[in-house]
């Protein structure tokens, strides 16, 4: 359980995942933020108005999956690095998972990395498709990973090969 080991349960996740039907229509944000904490930059960073206004700063984020276009702007503003974008339509066999990343070295497009799940365990391999690391992102890079479709709700981190 989250409060005991920092790993969200399937029940926690069930409350924040977009419906299958929305996933089938392209990239969308998933806010894996499960606690009422005083924090709201995600709301302020979304230009689509896809994150519901916080009437109380302690509320949890609520993504309006219809308004969200998966642009990922909110990802690098979230101090919890808790927002991911998943694109289930990337190819027939692969999905795209966008991951906020603050470690060195930052991988390059084309590189193969070790895919890691929420518990910190290796679950397979992923291909780096693109790395966004603009000034506006202020040192929180966003790494686009292509992963087998059945892993798109598993992979939430990665390790660069040869680096411990």
């Amino acid at each position: 359980m989250l409060a005991q080991n920092g790993i969200p349960t399937p029940e926690d996740l069930a409350g924040v995942l977009p419906p299958e039907e929305r996933l089938a229509r392209g990239p969308v944000a998933i806010a894996e933020c499960f606690q009422n904490i005083p924090c709201d930059p995600c709301y302020h960073s979304c230009k689509q108005g896809a994150i519901k206004e916080f009437t109380d700063i302690n509320q949890r984020p609520q993504v309006d999956f219809e308004k969200c276009n998966g642009c990922g702007s909110c990802m690098s503003r979230c101090p919890g690095l808790a927002i991911f974008v998943v694109d289930a339509t990337y190819s027939d066999s692969e999905a795209l998972v966008k991951i906020p990343y603050e470690f060195l070295p930052i991988p390059e497009a084309g590189e193969t990395v070790t895919a890691i799940n929420r518990a910190g365990r290796e679950v397979g391999e992923a291909r780096v498709i693109r790395v966004q690391n603009t000034r506006a992102q202020d040192r929180t890079a966003i790494v686009w990973l292509a992963v087998p479709k059945d892993l798109m709700m598993e992979v939430r981190h990665f390790k660069v090969k040869g680096v411990r």
């Binding site: 989250l2 790993i7 606690q35 924090c39 808790a82 929420r118």
Partner: peptide, 10 residues
Amino acid sequence: YWVHASKVVR
């Protein structure tokens, strides 16, 4: 905050 915890656990 659990988001911090999750980030080191993964």
